[in-house]
Design a protein around this nucleic acid. Structure first.
Lengths: 199, 199, 199, 199
DNA sequence: GATGAATGAGTTTTCATTCAT
DNA sequence: CATGAATGAAAACTCATTCAT
């Protein structure tokens, strides 16, 4: 504060950063295994830090959820960005959907935590919803413009379907089931398929 | 069947019946609002009975879930039965799906019931799941046999897709979104639509 | 509720009453010894009840303070009533003041707790202030009417002086000190003593 | 005294001095509001310094108390010294008492200082108590020697009475009340007033 | 049968104090 | 020196479950 006036927040201490990471990593594991009600003490133990340290970084359970959640969302969003280079727009979409399932598969109980954040914390919900729909929207728009996919389904719809299907992840075989469903769904999206229904 | 004197289950006392109903009603409210981990004390309080009374009627949390949600699930099952008389198998399927959405929109607690069916491992889940998938399975089988619908999707899958789509039913416009998604999904189910994927 | 409609609150269970008393008694001891920050766990232990029981009876620390406090105040108030039969009004006053010191002497740290409640809980403060000033006021009025005591001091003033003097009760010998001070004070109250000041 | 090179206490760094002041100021505020058990973190936060800095300046809570309150107490002591020149010993006493009330009314924290003097067992309390009682004792001794005031009251008693009366200084009108009480008290101190008690 | 009191294990939460940067 | 992160002991608090009335 004395010598370098341009410093507003002293360099984050090395061990603090490391501990923060540890806690986040541990939280992912523990919440995945034990659901959103898992004990924070357990998270701290898993992270190898004191419970006080956990609380310093994340004063409330929700703060911890949020921090974990944000990076998850960002990873999904980044994946969507990468898939923009995939030649077939429909396949890009399909692959993003399938990848997301894989992603969720590695963090079972995490979905519940994410769902909680989605409904409870509107600021975060808005952030991630916007982030994700923007990414998916881009994939979707490409497919629609290419004339491969019907235009009456929104990124929002897509997200709803995906999250919802993944939410039910407690039975054995849920993953295969969701992959099957996604195929059905993507097939349904493709144009040139029968509009035979009561129209 | 109840009139024989050697019966072990005496006349159910009037207030006992009333209390049972109260608890059931309260449980639906409280679980809907606070999730399945909501405090049983809260349920009793909401019902206006003592916690001991709740425990007498429902010795375990599972027992309470069961009593609350079994009848909800059975209604859906019955609806599926009725639709067997619908001439077009695909339309029967579609109508069941759409009707279920209406149900969810109307009956608070239906989602929770369905989520439990797909999620938990209780006796209730097993019973209800079996009941329900059997009914839906019949609808599905008809459509498959008629050659109208692909054969690689199970009643279980169908249920999962439906529940999932309905899961986020707190955003405005969720109902329209789900109906759109169901149409896409049913379209995807119909045979003769492109198997272009991964080829 | 069924047979005796005039019952609004079922007879308080015997053990509940006993436990409540135990906790109150223990609280008096523990707060007296350890001051107002003493652990509630310690109170429960001293009372021989579970911590949950303590919380059931007194959901917050303040509730417990309050309950303890009320009876203390009532005891002091009753003492003032009894002293109405004392022939000399001034002596009645003096004896009440001295008795109060004895009273406080048995519950050292309790004063701090009571002070906290007095400032924090205005409802209670009003109640006890009213209660006490009414009692003291009666003693005082008798003495004033008898022409033994000056009329420009209120029950409120008296209470302030008494409570204040007792507040500083951490030094050895405080009790003797306060008793000396009370004598000086009562002497000052008597009429016919010099009004010599700045006149 | 500071200029010799072998000095162990180097020039006090400018920011160190500033921080010390900040902490002192913050401590007065925080202890006044939250009592003597207020969190030291809160003090540091209020001061805008790190908790470590607070600890460097004041290794123990007592050290902080001391630094905060010592100068307050010394002011009262000095006032008593000045009043030694007042011709009437009783009036000197009375004026000191009344002045102290003014002090309390004006200077937030003075009460806390005085309470500590009479209550705690720290080195600070001993020092301040000695300092103060010596000054008041001189005033008192003069009055006793002049035969104007009874001899069985100590400087300590006087202090206790004064502090006590001021203790409840949050009610409206407390100041008038205390001034009234002090007059009663001083009247009680004067000799030649009735020793009628317990006779 | 109904009630609500009792219990205590399990969690959350706070803070004084120490230490690495 | 200043800082604030780390730590863990200690307390607060909640709630499922059992039981006396």
């Amino acid at each position: 504060m004395e010598t370098k006036p341009q410093e507003q927040t002293r360099k984050p201490r090395a061990d603090a950063v490391r501990n923060r990471e540890r806690v986040l990593h541990a939280a992912k594991l523990v919440f995945s295994a034990g659901g959103p009600d898992a004990s924070l003490e357990a998270v701290a133990r898993q992270a190898g830090v004191g419970i006080g340290t956990l609380y310093r970084h994340f004063p409330t359970r929700e703060d911890l959820f949020e921090a974990v959640y944000r990076r998850e969302v960002e990873q999904l969003s980044e994946l969507a960005e990468e898939l923009k280079s995939e030649p077939s727009p429909v396949e890009a979409l399909r692959r993003w959907l399938r990848s997301t399932v894989q992603f969720v598969a590695t963090k079972k109980g995490m979905m519940a935590a994410l769902a909680i954040v989605m409904t409870a914390n509107s600021e975060l919900a808005a952030y991630s919803h916007g982030h994700l729909t923007r990414s998916i929207g881009a994939l979707l728009a490409r497919a629609v413009e290419a004339g491969e996919v019907r235009a009456d389904v929104t990124a929002d719809d897509l997200l709803r379907a995906l999250i919802g299907m993944c939410y039910m992840h407690d039975q054995t075989g849920w993953q295969q089931s969701v992959l099957r469903l996604l195929d059905v769904f993507v097939d349904g999206l493709r144009v040139g398929k029968g509009r035979a229904r009561e129209a």
